[in-house]
């Protein structure tokens, strides 16, 4: 029995469908970075602790270093590159920038993807909810204070945008 027989996968990434023959052992993070060239998703600890590799898989934050590409077959992935729309940064990206939610920036893509999942579930989270929601993402620079502030600011902005859109006043 051959151990290197490749498997065909079809994965929608940031809206575009990709099809490749991959080795079964290929991790989703390697698929994104090495096959698709989407290097915004980082490899940190590579042991499912640090969360730098977090992406959304079918709308849920997962650690892409601990998912095989073949497990994501047929699925939909969103990476940090998929957040900006029409040349405008996502409110979370803007808020991390404005509130200094990053220093070295290594954890930031994963932190933002986790925060996005959190805000999808809790549009108006208190500080405790944010801190618990980001437990799977480690930052060794900021001490988390400004990350929490950035997520709070983004939440307020996203709620306002939603309210404006509901009132028919959306500007996009």
């Amino acid at each position: 029995m051959s151990q290197d027989s490749r498997v065909r996968v079809r994965i929608r990434v940031n809206g575009d469908v990709h099809e490749h023959e991959v080795e079964p052992r290929l991790l989703l993070v390697q698929y994104l970075r090495d096959v698709l060239g989407l290097t915004g998703t980082h490899v940190g600890c590579d042991t499912s602790h640090c969360g730098a590799c977090t992406v959304l898989l079918d709308g849920e934050a997962v650690k892409s270093c601990t998912v095989l590409a073949v497990q994501a077959d047929g699925g939909e992935v969103t990476t940090i590159e998929g957040l900006a729309q029409h040349g405008r940064l996502h409110p979370l990206q803007e808020a991390f920038w404005e509130h200094h939610g990053l220093q070295c920036g290594y954890c930031t893509p994963g932190m933002i993807m986790s925060a996005l999942d959190l805000l999808n579930r809790h549009p108006d989270p208190d500080e405790e909810t944010i801190r618990r929601g980001l437990e799977g993402n480690l930052c060794r620079c900021t001490g988390y204070q400004n990350i929490v502030r950035a997520v709070q600011a983004a939440a307020a902005r996203m709620r306002a945008a939603e309210a404006a859109a509901a009132a028919g006043g959306g500007d996009d």
Binding site: G51, E60, A61, V62, T66, S114, R132, G133, G136
Partner: peptide, 9 residues
């Protein structure tokens, strides 16, 4: 158990 991402998988 672990953290939110791990609990989802």
């Amino acid at each position: 158990i672990a953290d939110p991402q791990v609990r989802r998988r």
